[in-house]
């Protein structure tokens, strides 16, 4: 990946430990269920994934869209419109760290590739002062999958956006990494975490 050099130079900043504001969940459990069922899930739960966001627009005060990313994601998500944020509250949802803060150069490169594909977006710029961490709402679906001769029945993960209800395969590696970090932390008992109380690693 072209960004890998920049990754190496990146300062290893972590997400602030203070409560990260959350994007308002637009899709409730009743609406998420049929969507997840369409993708083959038979069990589900809500989750929050911490990401880093940066505004796009002609001016910082008037953002037209937001890029959401973490340094370990190959590509940024594009979220049009305003960010509807609210303070984090203690719900029963799983809270996952999405990765470390990407550098501004990483964001710039992501936005460059987006615009090369769609040149009409050229006049819109990144607004560095708007950089912040947010928690992105997700619904995680679990499917028992097909019975495999060699490997038995595998559990598959389906990641659904809590904003639009779309399946977000691009976030799957970040969610899996978050789940693994969480399990490791619990095992080593350095930072005990129970459902609904764990915080993002970045």
């Amino acid at each position: 990946m072209a960004e890998s050099t920049a990754d190496a130079k990146r300062a290893s900043k972590k997400a602030p430990e203070a409560a990260i504001p959350r994007l308002s969940r637009q899709l409730d459990a009743a609406a998420a269920k049929p969507k997840l069922r369409h993708f083959g899930a038979d069990r589900f739960e809500p989750a929050w994934l911490s990401l880093w966001t940066l505004a796009i627009g002609r001016e910082a005060e008037e953002p037209l869209a937001w890029l959401l990313a973490a340094d370990n994601l190959p590509r940024a998500l594009l979220l049009p419109g305003e960010l509807s944020l609210r303070p984090a509250e203690n719900d029963d949802a799983l809270v996952l760290g999405g990765g470390r803060q990407p550098t501004l150069a990483q964001f710039e490169r992501w936005w460059l590739w987006e615009r090369l594909a769609r040149p009409r977006r050229w006049p819109l710029r990144l607004q560095p002062v708007t950089l912040r961490a947010v928690e992105f709402p997700l619904w995680l679906g679990y499917s028992q999958g097909r019975l495999s001769y060699r490997q038995g029945r595998k559990t598959q993960l389906i990641v659904l956006s809590g904003l639009s209800g779309e399946a977000l395969g691009a976030l799957k590696p970040a969610v899996l990494a978050g789940l693994r970090d969480r399990a490791n932390a619990r095992t080593s008992a350095i930072r005990p975490a129970t459902k609904g109380q764990n915080t993002a690693s970045g």
Partner: peptide, 18 residues
């Protein structure tokens, strides 16, 4: 890990995959 989480998660039943 996934089996553990799936076991605790709420059930939604099966349907044909999209």
């Amino acid at each position: 890990i996934l089996k553990g989480r799936s076991g605790d998660a709420a059930e939604i039943g099966r349907d044909a995959r999209l």
